[in-house]
């Protein structure tokens, strides 16, 4: 073949091959079980509050046994707060800040994108329900955030959360999914019921320049490792 003909073929190969290869090699939008499946269904009406009362057992009648406690105001015992997040396979090694709710009702995230927020109104990692850790994926001034690589996490990856007492909880990723923010299953993600699980959230998907934000959330669900 003449060099010019080879040039045409090569040029076209590069022109077509580049986007095709990019499309084929990029991370798929989801991996592992769907997030909706990995998170237990939120019960529409929470069951009666408090611990279930043992029904009449030893008592002679049909009335339940009654536990009684002092009702004087007491200080709630402090629980150890999670302070550090590590996902070795992604190179994530970030401090955690306890965060609450912003004025607009959304979860508040640390301003510093190198830090990750722990939703302090929900469970701590290891407690019953969903412990939610979330961070900005990037910032116009600060660049990429600590969780920027979350989009690439593979099921089976290990996540470690360390609390202020130095106690570690270890987790295994079971699910990763890009979900439109409009249909994010918030009640499930923030559910305080069910077996302990860890939910990592950041932004992802197409960037909507007109809104200055991303269309989707990257949601990763991890289950406790023994």
């Amino acid at each position: 073949m003449r060099p010019a003909a080879a040039g045409v073929v090569l040029g076209l190969a590069v022109a077509i091959g580049t986007p095709v290869t990019w499309q084929l090699t990029r991370e798929p939008e989801a991996a592992g079980a769907p997030v909706e499946q990995a998170l237990p269904e939120a019960s529409p009406a929470p069951p009666s509050p408090g611990s279930p009362t043992p029904q009449a057992s030893a008592s002679p009648g049909w009335l339940p046994e009654v536990a009684v406690r002092d009702a004087a105001p007491t200080a709630t015992p402090e629980r150890p707060e999670p302070t550090w997040l590590t996902v070795t396979s992604l190179g994530i090694d970030a401090p955690l800040d306890p965060v609450g709710v912003a004025a607009d009702g959304q979860m508040l995230l640390p301003e510093d994108v190198s830090r990750v927020g722990w939703y302090r109104f929900g469970p701590a990692p290891g407690e019953e329900g969903s412990a939610v850790l979330a961070g900005h994926v990037d910032d116009r001034d600060q660049g990429l955030g600590a969780l920027a690589a979350l989009r690439e996490v593979e099921p089976g990856s290990q996540v470690v959360v360390t609390d202020e007492a130095g106690t570690q909880t270890r987790w295994r990723v079971v699910s990763r999914e890009l979900i439109h923010k409009q249909v994010l299953p918030l009640d499930r993600i923030f559910s305080e019921e069910g077996a302990p699980r860890l939910v990592l959230v950041t932004c992802g998907g197409p960037f909507l320049a007109e809104y200055g934000s991303y269309r989707d959330n990257v949601v990763v669900v991890a289950q406790p490792l023994p």
Partner: peptide
């Protein structure tokens, strides 16, 4: 006397997460 009655919780309305578009997924 104080009594705590749980079960009035609701989830935040969303999770914000980025403003720069550095990890934009749209297009090549």
């Amino acid at each position: 006397a104080v009594q705590t009655i749980p079960g009035a919780d609701s989830a935040p309305s969303g999770v914000p997460g980025g403003t720069a578009g550095l990890v934009d997924d749209e297009g090549v």
